[in-house]
Design a binder for these strands. Structure first.
Lengths: 341, 341
DNA sequence: GTGAAAGCGCTAACAT
DNA sequence: ATGTTAGCGCTTTCAC
């Protein structure tokens, strides 16, 4: 079914039918009703490509996922984010175009998206220091929103990010308030922006308390179970070990728990644990893992916000940068208790 | 830059330029070279929507991801699959359209995709028993490939699946060959097709050996760390416990290991473990988890195969069902050893 | 309030 | 080997 046929059936012009369907004011209510009924009856949906061609808007947002060489974009995070963004898109009748490309081809992909006019805007994932994509997209004139920030000076673009620094500062302060003095930090790789900010927050909390963060108690590395295990184990082996851990992801925390269990310690009594994880949903029923006690935020939420921000920018036709900084929730559980005597 | 301008610059007709760019044979080599050079120079890319409108092909494949109510489609699996499929698409100049929708709206989404003519075909994720989507897509006449199978009779559609049954049969037989007699199975929810097939394979191996699989040693439930821990712990508490586990996912295996560690057993000596996981990549560096010893296959591979199959079907214009059954690799490691005396 | 006609950027049949 | 023309399905002036 297409406009032509539908208008023929109705005995109206294509123009009127189009106007009725698109809620133009100049159509009489009677006609509109009749048109909409007929459209529904014949399951008519405007051909999106024809529509795009005529309007110059593609009604699609692009997500470019660079693959392989680097793994800054951890899969589960990405899935959660996409789910959030997707919700917003479908609610606003936009499509989501996913390009999974070797990171070498990333620039070419952006150029193509722009030249082929297949999207109205793009979301940038996993920003790096001085990220070249930002300059590229600016020069291409295509609206974009970055999920995360680069740590360098230039923040002259739109972004949505979690307040990682503050989140870790709060977690540390919370433990200090419970009487803990020696905290262990199990963190991700520090060349990743979020990990650096988390460490900064951790250090800031120490500073205001006049405490010293022992370098040995600040581990940075791949976010794996094994890494969490190894680092927690070695920290616990210290003659003067930490009495609490702040862990940068659930998967590492699982390793931390194993180390605690090996050391015959009881969580919440002998040792406390706080986890920060943005994407708990990738561990189905993550919460049934008894270690769970976390500062909780959500990439899912970030996905929604990025998508909404981008649509707003496109809608407004105004590209002055916007920023959203997400705060985290501190949810407590049985794995966190006062410092042991 | 568009065709019109480009052809004007070249002093040729749009037709010739189009033909040159699309590698039509009737264009002279000299012209083609000239045209391609100019196109490259001006960074010309055909407007994809105009092209689609003219050709009737959208050059896009749809993936509909139902969200929320059910969680059969575990995020990480999905991410890995998408990455594989995406590779194939970009290699073949297709776009990937992702629709994340509440599962209630799934049918409507398919109808829309068809009516709006926004995709040339779709991939169906997470098939259920007597899945209504299959009938729907057939009636809509839109080419599709299913990732997985429904267990019911009707396999009159194209699918790509892993040979779960055979994989678990082999794993069990491998352990039997090592002298194990009592095996524990830690499996996913059995209403999910793959879990059922896995159990079938497990049982089949027992049968050919004349062995009896104790129901208490076959656990089925949510694929979480906690579930793996609880079940392994209770099985190990049996007066006559299993000497080996076959585990249906890495995350459950992490729980299994914790239980083993709690029980003061040494893996590979006192107790063996084999893991089957289709999507190891979602645990970054999954292999550094020392428990790792797995029958390994890959959803990533499945994604590629689904995508390729769908493109072939679309290309051939022939919808007779095709099937691909993926076999798994059995990779051994230090967590698997002979049965203890 | 409704319609006729042009045009979005491309491809494809039909010339030549 | 190249050009002319029509048309894909829609929106959008412009006219009535």
């Amino acid at each position: 079914m297409n406009l032509k046929k539908l208008s023929k059936i109705l005995g109206l012009s294509q123009t009127t039918v189009s106007r009725a369907l698109n809620n133009y004011p100049e159509v009489s209510e009677a006609t509109r009703e009749r048109v909409k009924a007929a459209a529904a009856q014949h399951n008519y949906r405007a051909n999106i490509r024809a529509k795009s061609l005529a309007t110059g808007r593609s009604m699609a947002i692009g997500h470019v996922i660079p693959i392989s060489t680097r793994h800054e974009i951890v899969n589960p995070i990405f899935a959660d984010f996409i789910a959030g963004a997707g919700e917003i898109y479908s609610r606003n009748h936009h499509d989501m175009l996913l390009s999974v490309v070797p990171d070498i081809d990333e620039e070419r992909t952006y150029r193509e998206l722009a030249a082929k006019a297949s999207v109205d805007g793009v979301i940038v994932h996993g920003p790096r220091q001085n990220d070249p994509r930002i300059a590229l997209l600016k020069s291409l004139g295509i609206p974009f929103v970055v999920h995360g920030r680069t740590s360098d000076g230039d923040t002259d673009y739109s972004w949505v990010d979690v307040n990682n620094r503050r989140s870790f500062e709060r977690a540390a302060n919370f433990l200090f308030d419970l009487g803990h003095i020696r905290l262990g930090l199990i963190n991700g790789l520090e060349f990743m922006d979020f990990a650096k900010r988390r460490k900064d927050g951790f250090l800031a909390a120490h500073k205001t308390r006049g405490l010293h963060a022992h370098p040995v108690f600040m581990a940075t590395g791949e976010m794996t179970e094994g890494f969490g295990y190894n680092k927690a184990q070695s920290m616990l082996g210290d003659p003067n070990p930490p009495t609490a851990f702040i862990v940068s992801s659930m998967i590492m925390a699982i390793g931390v728990r194993r180390a605690i269990s090996d050391a015959q310690l009881k969580m919440g009594r002998d040792i406390s644990v706080i986890i920060h994880d943005d994407a708990l949903s990738y561990l189905p029923n993550g919460a049934d893992i008894p270690i769970f006690t976390a500062t909780k935020s959500s990439v899912h939420e970030a996905g929604k916000l990025c998508a909404q921000m981008l649509l707003d920018i496109i809608d407004a036709g105004d590209q002055t940068p916007r920023h959203t900084l997400l705060e985290t929730d501190l949810t407590l559980g049985e794995s966190t208790g006062p410092a042991p005597k």
